[in-house]
């Protein structure tokens, strides 16, 4: 965990600077274009309130895509952070848990900071807004844990992580109902949202942050989906760690 201390400054900037920039650019700047044309498209709330929870969840997923890709593989390959504790009697699962806990903490912290900034922008009107923090963290893990399993199975980065970023993370960010309701997209790309932790997290976030009116069954569906992703990812990760370090 001490490894993280060096990044404290950049984490701070990521968790404060990015939200401010995004909220301002999209929620205030872009909103002038959007709100001028159609306010009704977003269920009666301002564009800012509409995208804020989506940005919160996306930020968590992006952070987790970073933390669960390169650092995991590098842990095996270069810095040997994983082999280090492994020399002492720690089992692979514990080492995996250590990394996950560290990232979870970061996600919680970052999401809390994000929410605070949202509140300053007046973008989280509901008293239930704080639930977005665990929601975003869960979304991050739902995406991050399967990725961690994949990273742990890699011996070398031949550009796979760049591919994950460009072919998975970016599309998820762009096609998960982040900047506009999912159903404005043609069906051909709408399915991306349905399998995307970002979409499920975003919709959940909207329910809590501004009381987005959604079928409760669907809300429960979001939670189940996110938990399932995280669970599957966790199981696979365990297997990979055990195989890689041969217990």
């Amino acid at each position: 965990m001490r490894v993280f201390r060096g990044y404290a400054m950049s984490i701070l900037l990521y968790s404060v600077g990015m939200p401010v920039a995004y909220l301002f650019a999209m929620g205030v700047g872009l909103a002038t274009l959007v709100d001028a044309n159609q306010a009704a498209a977003f269920g009666g709330v301002s564009y800012l309130a509409f995208i804020a929870p989506a940005l919160l969840v996306s930020a968590a997923v992006m952070t987790s895509s970073g933390e669960f890709s390169y650092p995991v593989m590098a842990g095996f390959k270069w810095r040997r952070t994983y082999y280090g504790p492994h020399a002492s009697p720690l089992v692979p699962q514990q080492i995996a848990v250590g990394h996950i806990m560290a990232v979870t903490l970061r996600l919680l912290f970052q999401s809390a900071a994000y929410l605070g900034i949202m509140a300053l922008f007046g973008a989280s009107p509901s008293p239930w807004g704080w639930v977005s923090i665990p929601v975003a963290t869960l979304s991050g893990l739902a995406f991050g844990l399967p990725l961690m399993a994949y990273s742990a199975s890699l011996k070398q980065d031949k550009g796979q992580f760049a591919l994950v970023q460009r072919f998975i993370v970016t599309p998820l960010f762009l096609f998960s109902g982040t900047f506009f309701p999912l159903d404005t997209l043609p069906l051909a790309v709408r399915w991306i949202g349905w399998i995307s932790p970002v979409w499920h997290g975003t919709e959940l976030g909207r329910v809590f942050s501004y009381g987005y009116d959604e079928d409760p069954l669907l809300t429960i569906g979001h939670v189940v989906f996110l938990l399932a992703c995280a669970g599957v990812g966790w199981t696979l990760t365990q297997r990979c760690f055990v195989r890689r370090m041969g217990t």
């Binding site: 959007v34 498209a41 970016t170 096609f175 404005t184």
Partner: peptide, 23 residues
């Protein structure tokens, strides 16, 4: 090839998705 994909994705998502709202 993926380096070329990123702006295309943005164009499709923002241009088509958001575009239909913005006009």
């Amino acid at each position: 090839a993926s380096g070329f994909l990123e702006p295309v994705l943005f164009l499709v998502s923002m241009g088509v998705g958001l575009g239909s709202i913005v006009g």
